[in-house]
């Protein structure tokens, strides 16, 4: 398995997520697309940290390559926070408009 395998998988996930965000008419489906995009980002971080970053050597001459993994952990935390706020906003919109189709929430439109 080379780096390119992982990069191809994550770019496919990324463009599928973009497709969902662009075409779906339901806010929760858009959230699913965003989750796909975030997952592809995390996969890229971990793959690059496995294959590209210089090895960090610590006591016992074991090799660790870590920074990307920790950034991916932070990415997962941010995804969790984002999902919570997103769903709270969706609930508020549903209570106000009775629908979560983004094109029906157009009160501010002139």
């Amino acid at each position: 398995m080379s780096l390119q395998h992982y990069l191809v998988i994550s770019s496919i996930l990324f463009s599928l997520g973009i497709f969902a965000v662009l075409t779906r008419k339901n806010a929760i489906s858009i959230l699913m697309g965003i989750e796909l995009i975030l997952n592809s980002c995390n996969l890229n971080f971990v793959a690059f940290s496995r294959f590209v970053t210089p090895a960090e050597t610590i006591v016992g001459s074991e090799v660790f390559r870590f920074d990307g993994q920790i950034i991916a952990i932070f990415g997962i935390v941010l995804a969790a926070a984002e999902a919570a706020v997103f769903l709270a906003i969706i609930l508020a919109i549903y209570r106000e408009f009775g629908s979560i189709r983004p094109d029906e929430v157009d009160t501010l439109k002139g």
Binding site: A79, L87, I90, Y94, I100
Partner: peptide, 27 residues
């Protein structure tokens, strides 16, 4: 976090906002 947390959150969102009509996605 994802399967145990975020996905459950998404399913709750589906449950609380989707009537029978909204379950199907229009494109």
């Amino acid at each position: 976090v994802y399967v145990g947390g975020i996905l459950v959150l998404i399913l709750f969102g589906v449950m609380m906002t989707s009537g029978r009509l909204e379950m199907r996605i229009h494109i």
